[in-house]
Amino acid sequence: TETRTFTDEREARRFEQEARDNGKDVQVRESNGKFEVRVK
């Protein structure tokens, strides 16, 4: 599991989409204006 934290939602979404395109299981959590993207 890899976790990346972004402050920019667009960057978080781009990373999320890229991971999904690669067939990964992705979860995005938002807290305090930060976006935590977990990739399995």
Rank of each mutant, 00 (worst) to 15 (best):
E2R: 08
V39G: 02
F15W: 10
E2A: 07
F35T: 03
E36L: 11
F35A: 00
N22H: 11
F6I: 00
G23K: 05
E36K: 04
R14V: 10
T3D: 04
E30Q: 11
T7E: 10
N32G: 10
E36F: 13
Q27T: 13
G33A: 02
D21A: 15
R13M: 08
Q27Y: 14
K34R: 12
N32F: 07
S31K: 13
D25H: 12
V28G: 02
E30V: 14
N32I: 02
G33H: 03
D8L: 04
N32P: 03
G23C: 10
E11Y: 04
S31T: 13
A12Y: 04
E30I: 13
E16L: 08
E30A: 10
G33I: 00
R20V: 06
S31E: 12
N22I: 08
V28M: 10
E36A: 04
K40A: 12
E2W: 13
D25W: 15
Q17S: 07
A12E: 00
R20E: 03
G23N: 06
A19V: 05
K40M: 14
R14I: 12
K40V: 13
V37W: 02
E18R: 09
F35Y: 11
Q17D: 05
Q17V: 05
N22W: 09
R20A: 04
A12P: 00
F6H: 00
A19I: 04
E16M: 14
K34G: 08
E11K: 05
T3F: 12
T7I: 09
D8P: 00
D8W: 02
R10T: 11
F6E: 00
V39W: 07
R14Y: 06
F15T: 01
R10Y: 11
E2T: 11
T5G: 03
N22L: 14
E18H: 10
E36P: 01
V26Y: 03
F35H: 02
F15E: 02
A12T: 01
A12L: 04
R29A: 08
Q27S: 13
G23L: 04
E36D: 04
T5E: 07
E16W: 12
V26D: 01
R14H: 07
K24Q: 10
D25C: 14
R29Y: 15
V37F: 01
F35E: 01
T3L: 12
E11W: 04
Q17I: 07
R29W: 14
E2D: 09
A12M: 07
E30M: 14
Q27K: 07
T7N: 10
R20F: 05
R20G: 03
G23E: 03
S31R: 13
F15G: 01
R20D: 02
N32C: 13
D25Q: 12
E18K: 10
F15H: 03
V39P: 02
D21Q: 13
R13T: 04
G23H: 07
E30F: 15
R38C: 14
K34F: 14
V39T: 08
E36I: 15
E11T: 06
R38Q: 12
R38T: 15
V39F: 07
V26N: 01
R38S: 13
E30N: 08
G23P: 01
N22D: 09
T7A: 09
D21W: 10
T5F: 15
R13E: 03
Q17L: 08
R13N: 04
R10M: 11
R4E: 02
R29M: 12
G33N: 05
E9R: 06
E16T: 06
E30K: 11
E36H: 10
Q17N: 07
T3Y: 13
S31F: 15
T1D: 13
F15S: 02
K34W: 12
G23Y: 06
T3Q: 06
F35R: 01
D8A: 04
K34C: 13
V28A: 03
R38K: 10
V26G: 01
Q17T: 07
N22K: 13
G33P: 01
T7V: 09
F6Y: 05
V37N: 00
A12G: 01
N22P: 02
N22Y: 08
Q17H: 07
F15A: 05
S31I: 15
R14T: 07
E36M: 09
G33S: 03
E9Y: 09
K40Q: 12
V37S: 01
K34A: 09
T3W: 14
T5Y: 15
S31H: 14
R13W: 06
T3C: 15
E30P: 05
F15R: 02
E16P: 00
Q17F: 06
D21K: 14
A12I: 01
F35M: 03
R14M: 11
D25V: 12
G33L: 02
E18Y: 12
E16G: 07
V37T: 01
S31A: 12
D25F: 13
F15P: 00
Q27V: 13
R20T: 05
T5H: 09
F15I: 03
E9K: 06
R14Q: 11
R4N: 04
G33E: 02
V37A: 02
T1P: 08
A19P: 01
G23V: 02
Q27I: 13
R10D: 11
R14P: 01
R29K: 11
S31Y: 15
K24M: 14
A19M: 15
T7Y: 12
E9A: 08
G33Y: 02
K24I: 08
E36R: 05
R14N: 08
E30G: 06
A12K: 00
D8V: 04
E11M: 07
K24P: 01
T5C: 15
A12N: 00
E11Q: 07
E36V: 13
A12R: 02
T3K: 07
E16K: 02
R10H: 10
A12Q: 01
F15N: 01
T3I: 14
E11S: 07
R20N: 04
V28N: 02
V28Y: 11
K24G: 07
F6M: 00
V28R: 04
G23R: 04
V26R: 00
A19R: 04
E16A: 15
D21P: 00
E9N: 03
E16Q: 07
E18C: 14
K40N: 12
F6S: 00
R4M: 09
R13P: 00
D21M: 13
R20I: 09
Q17G: 05
T7P: 03
A19D: 01
A12H: 00
V37H: 00
K24S: 09
V37D: 01
A19F: 03
E11L: 08
K34T: 12
T5A: 06
E2F: 14
F6N: 00
S31W: 14
N32D: 11
E11G: 03
A12D: 00
T1A: 11
D21N: 13
S31P: 02
N22M: 14
N22Q: 14
R38Y: 14
D21H: 10
D25I: 13
V28K: 03
T3G: 05
R10P: 05
K34Y: 13
Q17C: 12
R29V: 14
E9I: 10
R38H: 12
N22F: 08
K40T: 15
E9F: 07
V37K: 01
V26T: 06
V26L: 02
N32M: 08
N22C: 14
A19Y: 04
T7F: 10
N32E: 09
E2G: 06
G33R: 02
T5M: 10
R29I: 15
T5D: 03
R29L: 14
G23I: 02
R20Q: 05
G33F: 01
F15Q: 01
R14W: 06
K24V: 06
D8M: 03
F35P: 00
E2I: 14
R29S: 12
E11P: 01
V28W: 13
E2Y: 15
R4G: 02
Q27M: 12
N32S: 06
R13H: 06
V26Q: 01
Q27P: 01
T1S: 11
E18W: 15
D8H: 05
V26F: 02
R4T: 07
F35Q: 01
D25Y: 13
E11N: 05
F15C: 06
T3S: 08
D21I: 10
E18A: 11
E30Y: 15
E16N: 01
Q27N: 09
R29Q: 10
E9M: 07
N32Q: 08
E18N: 08
N22R: 13
F15D: 01
F6K: 00
V26P: 05
E2K: 08
T3E: 05
V39Q: 03
F15L: 03
T7L: 10
R4S: 05
T5Q: 07
K24T: 04
G23Q: 05
